[in-house]
Amino acid sequence: MSEQYTYAVARIRALEVALFSNATIDQLIACSDYDQCLQFLSEKGWGDSDTPMQAEAILTREEEKIWEVVKDLHVDMEKFDVLSYPKLFHNLKAAIKNVCVGERDRHIFYEDVSIPGGAMLEIVKEKEFGKLPAGMQHAAEEAYEAMLHTRDGQLCDVIIDRAALDAVYAAGKEAKDEIIRDYAESTVAVADIKIAVRSQKTAKSLEFMTRAMAECDSVSVAQLSKAALNGMDAIRDYLMGTAYAEGAEALSQSPSAFERWCDNRIIQTISPQKYKAFTIGPVIAYVIARQNEIKTVRIILSGKLNDLPEDSIRERVREMYV
């Protein structure tokens, strides 16, 4: 057992006090309108004194605060690769589409990753895929060629999303920390289940699903994709026999209940970290919990903005970490 994370974990424990609990989320939902929600968030310390009273500005600032805290802890940032891969691959996707379509919109990139928008655009434009991390190079080349020759944005998405899942899974397998392994396994398995559900609804082929889904230990891609071809009941039956049986129940309730379960499953995976004192786990769990919190607040704000009834918003609200 290493004591190198003692300072970081203790600091995170102090920060966890400020995380939103389910009761706080209930209070936010109970706010009468969108403006009152923003006021509530401001009173809870969200945003800064100079942040405009706009949802996106507040949420963006909160996202920035997460990484400011993590950098301040002086822990090895490579441990967070598994969390940053989706953003990194998003930048690749956006850059390929930008270059192939000829648009130059820089506002669709994430800047808080190892290869920010400008650098990614340059790499794709010059076709210098060797400058990308090993797990991205082949997918980048393949997606670029596919986009250039077919102009099929969905094919490009499928290739890069699959590579992102493979990268997350490989990072999990290589990791010594239990939380990273568990998170990677859960993330990939939940993503595969999502792909199966959406493919079933849009009548996609077996080939498409096999291409989109990533292999993992807890879900069989072959069985899941075959189940998706046989209908939603077959997916549910298959899931009932796996560690994701709760997902099958959520699937039978409603699409939003299923989406909610997908995020809750990740929170359940990280929950044991609340009781660890000497590993990187609580720090990674805090980052995931904060991202989940911001996502939940975004759902509530968008529900309030569109005058959705309280019950409808509540159905979409994610489980909180604390």
Binding site: E3, T6, Y7, A8, A10, R11, A14
Partner: peptide, 17 residues
């Protein structure tokens, strides 16, 4: 030393403790 690191972490965020 070990306890001190943890104490420093908490005081960084909440000096009242």
């Amino acid at each position: 030393g070990i306890a001190g690191q943890a104490a420093a972490g908490v005081v960084t965020e909440d000096p009242s403790k």
